[in-house]
């Protein structure tokens, strides 16, 4: 992993995951409702800023960097929802997409904001864990079109069904020590 990594800082606090789609598709989905310019490059970096916005920078082959900003405040896209719901603030970092040869998909590398590195190792690990889960869900959306779930399915638990994910149900599940 370390040898093949062109991204500095991955070792400190990052997560890499490969998605079976061209980089452009990944990026479009990531930016979902944003007005992204046409990216021709192979490496794209997006930095999330606060709760409502992305700053993005695309490294376009032979053309240096393009920079810009976009808001996700009004986005209804599921990817944004997935990202928001599982990442605790501060969730800033950079995103790098590297398209692999022979249709092997796109490496998605996310590096957390260096500020996080000052936090305890435990907090950093927790953030990485959250980030990894967010990315796994993002990949489900991208490749499968939906996020796998068992919420609301039949079961031998209370009411003959697993909780459907509403807030109070999750709360009661937590206090009952059940699965999330």
């Amino acid at each position: 992993m370390a040898n093949s990594s062109p991204a500095k800082g991955m070792k400190e606090a990052g997560v890499a995951i490969t998605m079976q789609r061209p980089a452009q598709d990944v990026f479009d989905r990531w930016m979902a409702d944003a007005h992204s310019p046409a990216f021709a490059g192979q490496v794209i970096i997006v930095r999330r800023e606060g709760e409502t916005g992305f700053a993005w920078r695309a490294t376009v082959t032979d053309a240096g960097n393009i920079e810009g900003g976009t808001s996700i405040a009004s986005s209804e896209s599921s990817m944004t929802a997935g990202w928001k719901s599982t990442m605790q603030a501060p969730a800033a970092g950079s995103l790098m997409l590297i398209e692999l040869p022979y249709m092997r998909g796109t490496e998605v590398r996310v590096v957390l904001d260096p500020d996080r590195l000052k936090e305890s190792e435990k907090a950093r690990e927790a953030a990485r864990g959250e980030l990894r889960l967010s990315l796994l869900r993002f990949r489900q959306l991208l490749e499968a079109g939906e996020i796998a779930t068992v919420r609301g399915q039949s079961s031998g638990r209370k009411g003959g069904r697993d909780p459907d994910g509403s807030e109070d149900e999750q709360q009661s599940l937590k206090s009952a020590g059940g699965r999330s």
Binding site: Q20, Q140, A148, V150, R179
Partner: peptide, 27 residues
């Protein structure tokens, strides 16, 4: 085995390695 049909593994017929069908990947 539950398979999404769209991931790296499903595309190669390795359905039991599907990346996207486990809703509880942390377990």
């Amino acid at each position: 085995t539950i398979a999404c049909g769209g991931c790296f593994y499903c595309k190669q017929g390795q359905y039991s390695a599907c990346d996207n069908s486990n809703p509880n990947p942390s377990s």
